[in-house]
Design a protein around this nucleic acid. Structure first.
Lengths: 207, 207
DNA sequence: GCGATATTTTGACACTGTCAAGATTGATTG
DNA sequence: CAATCAATCTTGACAGTGTCAAAATATCGC
C-alpha cells in the first residue's frame, strides 16, 4: 500500500518525498539542473546521500517529477486563459496566451529547460507519467488551434496538426533563445512575441 | 611565436590539436556531449589524461571549438544557397534553405545542440572566437531577410530585425523539437518545414 | 511484544574535470 | 655539436558525481 496519510509526518523524516521535490525544484531554480546533485539535495534536506533513492528510483525520475509539475502549470495556464477570457475576441486571447507563456517560461526557465531539454528526453528516459501528461498538454494545445482555425482566427492551407506543431515550435524557439541566453535582451521580448503573433494570425494583418 | 608549420608532425604526437578536435567531434556525433569525457578522449587519441589541456584550456574551450566549426558549416551553407541559386525565384531559394538547414541540423544534431545549447551559452562561457563567428552568422541571416523584405518576398509590418529573430526562432524551434526527440517522427519533417515556410512567406498564400 | 516491512545509513566503486609537479622532447642559440 | 629553454606530455592527487549492496533503524499490523 502506498502512503495514505501524507499530511502528518510519517516514519523518520516526515514526508521526505515532498521535501525532496520541493527543495530540488528550488535548487534547480537557483542554479539549473547541473547544480542539482543528489548528494547536495540530500544534504540540504538533512538526510544521508542515498535516502532519496527510496522515493525516486533515479535522478532521472526526480527530474521527471519536477518537469511534470511544470507541465501541470502550463496546462493550467492554457485552460484558464481559454475559459476565463471567453468574452474577448479569440485573437486577443491567443495573443495574451503567447505573452504569458513566454513570460512563464522565462520566469521558471530552468524548469522549462527541464521540461523540453535533452536531459530527460534524450539522455534520460521520460517517466510514463511525464509522457502522458506532456502528450495530454499537446492535445489541449492542438484542440485550441483547431478551434482557432475553425473560427478563421488562423488561416492556413496546411493541416491543423502541422499548424499546431509549427506554431508551438515557434513559441518554443523563442523561449529557448531567451533561456539559452542567445538573444539576451529581455527588453526585445514583447516585440518579438508580437511579431510572432502577427506571423501566426495572418488575416489580422490582411484586414 | 605561435606554431607556424601545423602540417608536419611536431613534437611527440604530431598535431595533437587537430586529432583532439576530430575525434572529439566523432565522439559527440556518436553519443552526444555527455558521452564525451576528456579522459576517454585522451585515451582514444592515445595520450594521457591531461595532455589535451595543453591545447584546450578547458573542456569548455574544446566544445566551443567544435561548435565554431558547426557555425562555419551553416554559414557556408547560407552563402552557397544565396549565391548559387541566383536565377531561381527568391522564395524558392528560401524554401530550399529552410529544408537544407533543418536536414543539416538533424544530420549533425549533437553538434547543433552544442552550437545553441546551454552547455556553452549558460553553464560554460563562449570563447571570444565563437562569439564572433556566431554573431557574424546572424548578421548574414539578417542581411538575407532584409533582402527578402525589400523584394517583397516577405511582407511584414514589423521591423526587419524582429522578423529575422522570430523567423530564425521558428527554424530553431523546429530543429530543437526534432533533435530533442519531442516530435520523434522524422517523416513529418518535410511537411512541417513547408508549413513553416508558408507561415513566413505570407503573400505566397495570398496570391 | 514480535515479526515484517518500510526507511535510512554507511561503505564502496567507478567515473568525472582539472591542478601541481616532474619527466621528456624539440627547437634554438652559442 | 653542446647547452639552454620552452613546449609538450605523464603521473599523482583531490574533490566531486550517481548509485549499488549490506547493515542498521524505525514504524506498523498483529
Amino acid at each position: 500500500m502506498k502512503p495514505t496519510a501524507p499530511l502528518q509526518h510519517n516514519y523518520h523524516h516526515g514526508d521526505l518525498y515532498q521535501s525532496l521535490l520541493l527543495t530540488a525544484t528550488e535548487m534547480i531554480a537557483e542554479g539549473g539542473t547541473e547544480s542539482l546533485s543528489m548528494r547536495k539535495l540530500a544534504d540540504r534536506v538533512g538526510v544521508s546521500r542515498t535516502a532519496p533513492y527510496h522515493h525516486f528510483k533515479d535522478k532521472n525520475a526526480l527530474l521527471c517529477a519536477i518537469a511534470e509539475q511544470g507541465f501541470e502549470r502550463v496546462e493550467t495556464l492554457l485552460q484558464e486563459v481559454r475559459t476565463s477570457a471567453s468574452s474577448a475576441p479569440l485573437a486577443t486571447t491567443f495573443t495574451q496566451y503567447v505573452h504569458t507563456y513566454i513570460a512563464l517560461a522565462y520566469q521558471h526557465r530552468e524548469q522549462y529547460d527541464l521540461m523540453f531539454g535533452r536531459e530527460i528526453w534524450r539522455n534520460g528516459t521520460p517517466t510514463n507519467s511525464l509522457l502522458e501528461r506532456s502528450r495530454q498538454h499537446f492535445k489541449s494545445w492542438l484542440s485550441w488551434i483547431e478551434q482557432l482555425c475553425q473560427q478563421n482566427v488562423i488561416q492556413t492551407g496546411d493541416s491543423v496538426l502541422r499548424t499546431a506543431q509549427v506554431y508551438w515550435a515557434t513559441l518554443h524557439g523563442l523561449c529557448r533563445l531567451l533561456n539559452d541566453g542567445i538573444y539576451t535582451e529581455q527588453s526585445q521580448l514583447e516585440e518579438m512575441a508580437n511579431t510572432a503573433v502577427n506571423m501566426m494570425l495572418k488575416h489580422q494583418t490582411a484586414v
